[in-house]
Structures are given as structure tokens and as C-alpha cells.
């Protein structure tokens, strides 16, 4: 463990808590893409299959349980409890355009051709594009609530910090995972436009508005 990965995990945790807080306090999931949340739940479900077979540390297991459970709660809140506030008309990104290519790529490009490894690879590739429905929805609505922009900033920062973690681990531990690094860079690059808007607008107290 290193400081970059720890802050990254805390940023990821914060993002999930911010989203749950937003939905619970406003009793609404307006402006949130349910499709991205479904993808995140799928990412955790396919990545943490080793939860009961490979024990890394109490921290690792606790966080995995937290991520799996909160992602399922988030999907439940969006599609059941607060369904009336779910903006389906703007959440129209076709998930099959992401899941099918990512699934195919995971079959073709992986570290070894075993079910667990292919599912882990699928999860890594899927996570790198899972935010696209959310970004797409925001470009259609042309704006986002401030709390939602904080959620996205924390979520985007987590993988950016993981890139620093991989640099650290490469130089100090000789650890290197090309699949995770490439996917992590793609994932972080997808946030660049949002990061720019967040830093130039939200941090100046303005509302986040995207060029629709």
C-alpha cells in the first residue's frame, strides 16, 4: 500500500458516499445516469469474485464488500425507491455498445485465459468506459448539480491517483500491470473535459454547465 493508492481508495469511497448522500438528501436521482451505476455494479461483481477465495488484507476485503454493497444499493435506489425521479429520457446511452466490445476485448487481450482472469480483465476494461453514459447524459442535459460534480470529481480523481500508485509501484516494487495501466489512463482521460470544467467553474462557485 502507498499514499497514492490510499488517497485514491478514499476518493473512490468519498465519491460513492457523496452519490448516496445526494440521493438520500434530495430524495432524487435527477441528473444521475442509472446506466453508469449498473456498469459500476457489474465492474465490482466481476472484479471481486475472489472476495472469498483470496484474502489479501482486512482493508482489501472490507473495501470490496463496501463497494459491492453500495453499488447494489445505488442501483436499487435509482431503479426502485427513487425511480420516479430517474431521468430515463436523458439516460439513453446504449450499454450494449460498451459491454459487447469490452467483453470481446477481454477475451482477446488478457494475462491468461482463465475464467477469473477474463472476468477481472472485463471488469478493468469496463470500468474505464463505465462513466460514458453519465458524461453523455450531462452533455444532453447541459448541466449538473454541484453535488453531482463533486461526485464525479472524486470518482475521476481516484483512478488518476491510481496511475500515480502504479508509477510508485513500478519504481519501488517493480510491479507493473499493463492492462490496468492502459485502462486506467483511458478512464482518466475521459474525465479531462469534466476536470477542466470542474476546476474553472465549480471551484469558482459557478454551476457546472456543459456546452450542450
Amino acid at each position: 500500500m502507498n499514499i497514492f493508492r490510499l488517497i485514491g481508495d478514499m476518493s473512490h469511497l468519498l465519491a460513492i458516499v457523496l452519490l448516496l448522500l445526494k440521493m438520500w438528501k434530495t430524495r432524487s436521482c435527477a441528473g444521475i445516469s442509472g446506466k453508469s451505476q449498473i456498469l459500476f455494479a457489474l465492474v465490482f461483481a466481476t472484479r471481486y469474485l475472489d472476495l472469498f477465495t483470496a484474502f489479501i488484507s482486512a482493508y482489501n476485503s472490507t473495501m470490496k464488500l463496501f463497494f459491492i454493497s453500495t453499488s447494489l444499493v445505488t442501483v436499487y435506489l435509482m431503479y426502485f425507491k427513487f425511480r420516479a425521479t430517474y431521468d430515463a429520457n436523458h439516460d439513453t446511452f446504449r450499454l450494449e455498445f460498451l459491454v459487447v466490445p469490452v467483453g470481446g476485448l477481454a477475451f482477446l487481450v488478457n494475462h491468461n485465459f482463465s475464467p477469473l482472469e477474463i472476468l477481472w480483465t472485463f471488469s478493468i476494461y469496463l470500468e474505464s468506459v463505465a462513466i460514458l453514459p453519465q458524461l453523455f447524459m450531462m452533455s444532453k442535459t447541459g448541466e449538473a448539480e454541484t453535488i453531482t460534480s463533486h461526485y464525479l470529481f472524486a470518482l475521476g480523481s481516484y483512478r488518476a491517483l491510481y496511475i500515480l500508485n502504479w508509477v510508485f509501484r513500478y519504481y519501488f516494487e517493480g510491479f507493473f500491470d499493463l492492462i490496468a495501466v492502459v485502462a486506467g489512463c483511458v478512464q482518466t482521460i475521459l474525465y479531462c473535459d469534466f476536470f477542466y470544467l470542474y476546476i474553472t467553474k465549480v471551484l469558482k462557485g459557478k454551476k457546472l454547465s456543459l456546452p450542450a
Binding site: D50, W120, Y162, N165, D177, A180
Partner: peptide, 10 residues
């Protein structure tokens, strides 16, 4: 099939 890097990250 090279050995996959250890999976100790979230």
C-alpha cells in the same frame, strides 16, 4: 500465458 501480476488492488 505469462503469469498474471498479483491482484492486491481494489
Amino acid at each position: 500465458d505469462d503469469a498474471a501480476p498479483e491482484k492486491d488492488e481494489l
